[in-house]
């Protein structure tokens, strides 16, 4: 008869997870830290590369989406669009845009309080924003700001960063599906949802201000944008202030603009150029047409 013993084995040989929370914190912090560092590096790389990409190439990238952008903007309003285009054509050379970087402005009759610049020098200005501008100068400031994004190649930076991050995330998670990349590169919706950093916004403010001063000889109206929108946003919470969502902290922007205008001797209190007389009527008409077209979908701002 064989004798067998059954010794008690110590616990924890096959289970070493004594501090799961600590492991979780370390892993999360480490992975997020590495991810942040990697993405920052990619972002910087995109920023370095973007201005070196020929503008022609950017126009080519945007070409497939122009029709969609046009459609999204709603019915064409030739008179308003020609006026806005004229304003852009005066501002762009004053801001140092060469003839090789043409800017194209679209007018959208939607009530969204916003204006945006996207790939290929395409700008969209919404009725909701124009209606809140007291003078041509104020409108010119917004457009100068958006033109500056084109000039600084911010949409390319933003897109490049998005694409680089999508590729990095795909590589990291091992997801072979194109979903992420497709969202960043292929969807038309992206053209109106590019986001820029605070530094980019600040530089755009500054360049826009320069353009404004070069065209009108003074900086009147430069502050209206943030002053009007900031004040209005504070009083009506329901309004879709998309422009303020993507351009936060109006107070600090006003200060920066004031300081720059003062340093350059651009008068902020000069008499501004009024908006054309026919404009309010044309805006109202375009709104009515939009309503007839789309039955004023939920996409436009409640007014």
């Amino acid at each position: 008869m064989v004798e067998y013993r059954n010794p008690r084995l110590p616990e924890g040989i096959n289970n070493s997870a004594r501090r799961p929370l600590r492991e979780f914190v370390w892993l999360t912090a480490g992975v997020l830290g590495l991810l942040a560092a990697g993405l920052t590096a990619l972002g910087l790389a995109a920023r370095w590369v973007a201005p070196r990409i020929p503008f022609d190439y950017e126009v080519g990238l945007a070409a497939p989406f122009v029709a969609a952008l046009r459609e999204e903007a709603g019915p064409i309003e030739p008179r308003i669009e020609v006026y806005l285009q004229g304003l852009a054509d005066r501002l762009a050379p004053a801001m140092g845009m060469g003839p090789d970087m043409p800017v194209r402005v679209y007018y959208s009759a939607e009530g969204t309080v916003n204006a945006l610049a996207t790939l290929g020098g395409h700008l969209v200005v919404y009725r909701g924003l124009i209606e809140r501008m007291d003078s041509e100068n104020a409108l010119a400031m917004v457009m100068g700001h958006e033109i500056a994004h084109v000039l600084h190649r911010d949409p390319t930076v933003s897109l490049g960063r998005g694409a680089a991050m999508a590729v990095a995330l795909c590589a990291l998670t091992g997801v072979s599906s194109n979903d992420i990349a497709k969202q960043v590169i292929g969807e038309a919706g992206l053209l109106t949802s590019l986001s820029f950093s605070r530094t980019q916004e600040k530089q755009a403010d500054s360049a826009g201000l320069r353009g404004l001063a070069a065209v009108y000889g003074h900086a009147a109206g430069a502050l209206d944008l943030y002053r009007t929108l900031g004040g209005e946003a504070a009083s009506t919470a329901r309004l879709h202030m998309d422009f303020l969502d993507t351009h936060p902290d109006p107070g600090r922007r006003i200060q920066a603009i004031e300081a720059e205008a003062r340093a350059n001797g651009w008068a902020l209190n000069a008499a501004p150029t009024p908006l054309p007389d026919w404009l309010p009527e044309a805006l109202a008409a375009s709104r009515a047409r939009l309503g007839a077209d789309w039955r004023d979908s939920g996409a436009s701002a409640p007014e």
Partner: peptide, 26 residues
């Protein structure tokens, strides 16, 4: 979910997947 999440993070950097050790041991 917690264990799976930690194991997923572990899968990115490599090393002992301690969060699953207890599971398999049990």
């Amino acid at each position: 979910y917690f264990k799976a999440f930690v194991a997923g993070l572990r899968g990115l950097v490599g090393g002992r997947v301690t969060s699953y050790e207890g599971l398999l041991d049990r």
